[in-house]
Design a protein around this nucleic acid. Sequence first.
DNA 1: GCCGTTTTCGGCCCGACTGTTTTCAGTCG
Length: 576
Amino acid sequence: MDKEEVIKILKEISVLLELKDENPFKIRAYQNSARSLEASDIDFGRDLKIDDLTKIKGIGQHIAESIKELVDTGSLKFYEDLKKTVPPGLVEMLAIPTMGPKKIKYLFDNLQVSNTGELEYACIENRLVDLPNFGKKTQENILKGIEVLKKYKGRYLFANIIEEAEVIHNKIQNFQYVNRSSLAGSVRRKKEIVKDIDIVASTDNPDKVMDFFTGLSEAEDIIARGDTKSSIRLKSGINVDIRSVDDFQYPYALHHFTGSKEHNTAMRTAAKKDSIKMNEYGLFKNGSLIKCSDEAGIFNFFSMDWIPPELRENYGEIEAAKNKTLPKLIEEKDIKGMFHIHTTHSDGNISIEQTCNYLQKMGLQYAGISEHSRTASYAGGLKNDDINRYLEEIDKLNQKCTSFKIFKGIESDILLDGNLDYSDYILSKFDFIIAAIHSGFNLSKEQMTDRIIKAIENKFTTMLAHPTGRLLLARDPYRVDIIRIINAAAENDVDIELNSSPFRLDLDWRMCKYAKEKGVKIFINPDAHSLKNLDDYKFGVNIARKGWLEKEDVPNTLSAKEIEIYLKNKKNKKTK
DNA sequence: GCCGTTTTCGGCCCGACTGTTTTCAGTCG
């Protein structure tokens, strides 16, 4: 058994123990051990020693033995026995917002509610209202939570499916009877959430391609098997659809199945004005095909520049392509450094030095470290007394290494009244300040907007973090007037982050274009808590591209020297 | 269950928020 699986099981044990209302410190011990293991570089190869495991802080004798048992035998008796005592439906219920282990256990013990369906029914029957510590409001909130869960079912985070999508597409691409092929649909458009994976392939032998596709080892289930169109379901639950066409039809089919529906409709409407019929099989004038050898040929026929798939959302791209005013979209290689990184000073699991080494290896020039602030005590936020030690470490590292620059930052919580949670004196010590909401999500839209604008007006604020607080497929954005926020950012020379965590991708791409028009700069930030998170900037770049952003709109495409001046100027201008 | 030590026990992060209460329980981050 490999390290990832062991970590997963340790986490699962902690969840099961929670549902059994075990000693909270024992539960935390399992959580901590999983986390320590994630952070450590211990080799699970051959000859894993218990002594090596117990050297890791957070792993003691007992858990070390459990890990050893898992690695050596592939299973753990304690875990297997534990699983038998907790119905799987209880674990599933943890996904419902407002439902935690205590409520789940109480309802199981007293109402024999053992899964989400039974819970929903019990709520509808009003069986929760009279239980101690429950009531009308609690019951309503549970029902609402179940609704949210249902709403998001069958939708997947781009980041969670892209690797699998590419693996399957590569197999298709390399299949001997396939000429040209591509991922299409929302995956090709780099949408943050997708419902399925679309593939378009050209072939002289569709039958062979359909057989090959439905016979893929990744196929958990065959949903449909037709002459030119088939569909399979993967283990993750997501469907993959394939469409095969003749090679001369490939450009039209690729365009058609890339979409979006809105983009296609607008394209067809424009075509119809010129008496052209447009569908997945071609462009037709008076019934005869207008030949295009690739997608660019189609756009060219309409005197348009080729539109990158990310822009095909009918957000003005067709007009811009006609006017030759499409943006030159930002690319991954344009990124020169990263901000919004957490390290072991707060809740990250990497040291500042590790982070910088990693980024330097990626070819980047600088890092902006930003720990949580004192209000975020759950995340080990820095108390006033911690700050000098943190800043001194960065100074030392900067002295030691002159080829890589570290900027000193803090992710300062925006309090309920809109103030940041440090004094001006402390805030002035940093190179940059990221203002962020981490609590008090339930204000009215006006209160929340006013609160954030007050933080934007703070002379020390450099940029606003994750402006809507959404967690994709899990938590709706808080109520906030994002237009007013962007306007306030423009007026106060405050930048906005595009948080690149695949769970956030916040600022939303639909708003990036507006921010750009207002002259607001957008930082592409990983919000990293581990080395792996640092790679998430790629998802941010995808979304920035969807939001029409160019290199010039993103400050962290500047060189180390340039960004140093950029930050200094901003600070001096605002705090003078 | 882990850790550290005044070493075989005692402490382990906690504040905001909601909804339930009338001082507290549970969730969230």
